[in-house]
Amino acid sequence: MSSLSLSKQTVSIGLVNPKNPVNVASILRAAGCYGVSSVFYTGYRYRIAKNFNADTKAFHKKIPTIGVDDLKEVVPENASVVAIELVEGALPLPEFKHPENAMYIFGPEDGSLDKSVLEWCDHVVYIPTYSCMNLAATANVVLYDRLAKSEYISGNSLIRESRDNNNQSKL
């Protein structure tokens, strides 16, 4: 994972009232793969369901996953807040330049981010698709886009460090 950590960058995720522990576990898996330093969530639904999580790589033990009352109160110092939402007037993800330090805010699987949340965000970005994606897929796409647009170390050492222990394939 160290090869993927983006120097001088801090990435956090904020989840608004997530309902599905499997989706949150998938977000934690993505967070571990893409160097996210912390995940914050609001609401009660995940707090009730989190004991049933499916985080097979146990990233919840490595990445702080913290329930809070208000995501605005936990924005990391000097971070730009990026809301990810299908809302008119948002910037398409392919055109977005990710800030060095960012907190990405995602809405619930069964709703949208309130206008009151969008108003305190520095950027509002959407992923161009033919239909809406689920929460975990959206987070994975955003984090991958951030990586793809950055300077990262590539090659066999990254592959060896990233792959599953059962995969020893070579070309």
Rank of each mutant, 00 (worst) to 15 (best):
N17I: 00
L4S: 11
V124E: 09
E109K: 05
P64V: 06
F96Y: 13
H123Y: 15
V11M: 12
D164W: 07
D110A: 06
V22A: 13
I159V: 14
A54Q: 15
V125D: 07
V16K: 11
V87C: 00
G43S: 12
G155S: 04
G107H: 05
A58D: 11
S3W: 11
S131H: 10
P92R: 08
V125M: 03
V82T: 07
P128H: 06
V74T: 04
N20Y: 11
Y46M: 10
D110R: 05
E109A: 07
F59A: 09
Y130H: 07
S38Q: 15
I13K: 09
Y44M: 10
S131K: 12
A54M: 09
N23Y: 04
A136S: 15
P18N: 10
L113P: 03
N156P: 00
V68N: 10
G67K: 06
V22Y: 13
V117C: 04
E95C: 02
K170A: 09
E95T: 04
E109H: 05
E73F: 03
S150P: 00
I159G: 02
D164H: 15
C33D: 14
P21I: 13
C132P: 08
L171T: 07
R29K: 12
L28F: 04
V11K: 10
K61R: 14
I127T: 05
E100R: 06
S26R: 11
W120H: 08
P108I: 01
I105D: 03
N53G: 10
F52M: 12
D164L: 10
Y46L: 15
L93I: 14
Y130P: 00
R29G: 04
A49G: 13
V22F: 14
I159E: 08
K115Q: 01
L147V: 01
G111M: 03
D69V: 00
L15H: 11
V24I: 14
I63D: 07
Y46H: 12
G43H: 12
Y44C: 06
R45V: 01
V68K: 10
P99Q: 06
Y130N: 13
K115G: 00
D164I: 01
E85Y: 02
V22T: 13
V36G: 03
V68L: 11
M103Q: 10
E88H: 05
L158Q: 08
A136L: 04
S5W: 09
G35F: 05
L6F: 06
S131I: 02
S12W: 02
R47S: 14
V117L: 02
C33T: 15
G107E: 09
P128G: 06
K57N: 09
K57M: 13
N156W: 09
M133E: 07
P128M: 03
V82H: 08
K8S: 14
A31N: 09
R29Q: 10
V124S: 13
D145I: 00
D114M: 03
V36M: 05
E100I: 00
